[in-house]
Design a binder for these strands. Structure first.
Lengths: 106, 106
DNA sequence: CAGTATCCTTTAGGATACTG
DNA sequence: CAGTATCCTAAAGGATACTG
């Protein structure tokens, strides 16, 4: 459980993965960046490398005339859709009941 | 979705919440610590305060002869059980497919 | 276009000592 | 027993400049 949560920990993990799960098609680096503002190049690169290492996402360089790189969820990545969707539904149902902590104390 | 994940982000959030969800009974501070090693007093206090602020857990001081404090999941906290269980089941099913990243790069 | 490299600030979290 | 307070280190993450 903790391991599963670690996959989607980090500020940008869910937004990035979610966009890759919402489409059948691969997305280009720049396109992901456009859909997940305001993520920086550094953080997007880091997150994609991490997903790739973990096997949730596959990287596909396209050495065409206008060279670019596409990213796509693997079957393992796609198997995570249900868990994310449960979290999404829980949030929709309970968002109003959750109190926002003044400071995430320290 | 991101909001839901933030509730259970942090190193000790899931272990602490899970133990409170697995029992009907309130748990004492020291009992939680015993079940979630090796959490420090500081981190357990911080996490419980955070859950309390968010409305997932309720704090019940018992001013008895041997004074102590009990913690219990609220109905809102208990409503999170399903989401955590999905993550648990996903992990059980896919733990072997996930590659451990060498370094959680930076 | 899709990255690296570097510098910097903020936050998380551990260790330890102390207290009503 | 159930905390605070303090100090410290490590990790996360932002900003910016550079590159094959």
């Amino acid at each position: 459980m903790v391991m599963a949560i670690n996959l989607i920990a980090g500020k940008w993990a869910i937004p990035v993965l979610w966009h890759l799960l919402l489409t059948e098609d691969p997305l280009r680096f720049t396109e992901i960046r456009r859909r997940v503002p305001p993520i920086t190049q550094k953080e997007l690169t880091k997150q994609l490398r991490l997903f790739e290492e973990q096997g949730l996402v596959i990287r596909k360089p396209r050495p065409t005339v206008s060279p670019h790189v596409e990213y796509e969820a693997t079957p393992l990545g796609r198997s995570f859709y249900g868990a994310l969707d449960i979290l999404r539904l829980w949030m929709i149902e309970h968002v109003d009941e959750v109190q926002q902590p003044k400071i995430r104390n320290s």
